[in-house]
């Protein structure tokens, strides 16, 4: 009886998981259907498998430079992640360990600012970027993203729990502050830094409003805006737009599968320290 109840629970939750997965599977299947089959959903699995949609999307380079968008997205997301991790971890270290005067107050201000909706910044940041002549360059998407307070907040919470004795030992061994930070503190914060990195990467990869407003040149679009442009002009052809959707999602799913353990485990363990 107990085993039955347990099996029921497991089965039910597995079913829920599959329900959540099914739209994505359907998207992949449909992108491999010829156009004539797409609007006729008689069977979820294509009768005639084809890669024609993908060939069309990737071969359309002059009008919709898909490979270029991919390159832009990877570049922007990786650079953003790198900068956010560097800035946030250094700031968190300064606040929690180096005891910068006023650090606690600053942390409070950062957390307070996190409450302010991003839209409030949209117009001013736009004007600022235009003054800096950064509009329509990747810097417009990368640099402002480093101002977010979430990373500093999260890493500060984590660094507090790292035992100070380890650091002291390293200092006695003659390590510089930078050396202690890079060789002792960062490795100890590995999971938290990895989580922050992954969140930052996903957030940057999927940012829509930023590139929509800050970028003009089609060649400099990132994938979300590029895909939306493609959809606007090919809205009559679901097969093609779904192929762009699949291509835009695959890189992220690869990242997810590579770091799956980190993402979910450390998300559970670090997000909620307080």
């Amino acid at each position: 009886m107990k085993r039955l109840a347990e099996g029921l629970k497991n089965g039910l939750m597995t079913f829920l998981g599959l329900v959540f997965l099914s739209p994505i599977v359907l998207m992949v299947f449909t992108s491999m259907k010829p156009e004539s089959e797409v609007l006729n959903p008689e069977s979820a699995i294509p009768k005639h498998w084809t890669l024609g949609n993908f060939q069309h999307v990737l071969g359309w380079s002059e009008e919709a430079p898909f490979v270029r968008w991919l390159l832009n997205s990877v570049f922007v997301s990786t650079s953003t992640t790198l900068l956010v991790l560097t800035f946030s971890s250094m700031a968190a270290y300064a606040i929690t360990r180096l005891k910068v005067p006023g650090g606690g107050v600053f942390l409070g201000i950062i957390v307070g600012a996190m409450m302010i909706p991003g839209q409030l910044f949209l117009v001013p940041v736009y004007l600022l970027l235009s003054k800096l002549h950064w509009l329509d360059t990747p810097a417009a998407l990368i640099v402002p993203a480093t101002a977010g307070g979430f990373g500093v907040f999260m890493l500060s919470q984590f660094m507090r729990s790292v035992p100070e004795s380890l650091e002291e030992a390293a200092i006695l061994d003659g390590c510089t502050t930078l050396g202690v930070f890079a060789n002792v503190v960062l490795p100890l914060c590995g999971p938290a830094v990895a989580t922050l990195g992954i969140f930052t990467f996903i957030g940057s990869w999927n940012d829509f409003l930023g590139p929509l407003v800050f970028m003009d040149s089609v060649r400099d679009y990132t994938l979300p805006v590029g895909i939306a442009l493609y959809q606007a002009s090919y809205y009559t052809q679901y097969g093609l737009t779904l192929a762009t959707a699949v291509l835009g999602t695959v890189p992220l799913i690869i990242v997810f599968l590579l770091f799956q353990r980190y993402i979910v485990e450390s998300m559970s363990s670090t997000g909620l320290k307080d």
Binding site: N72, F75, S79, L82, T86, P138, A182, N183, P187
Partner: peptide, 20 residues
């Protein structure tokens, strides 16, 4: 090590930036 990860990411960014 974190240093290797950071260094790798930095190199990756520089390469991508150059290609772009």
């Amino acid at each position: 090590s974190p240093k290797a990860v950071f260094g790798g990411m930095l190199a990756f960014c520089v390469i991508l930036g150059t290609i772009r």
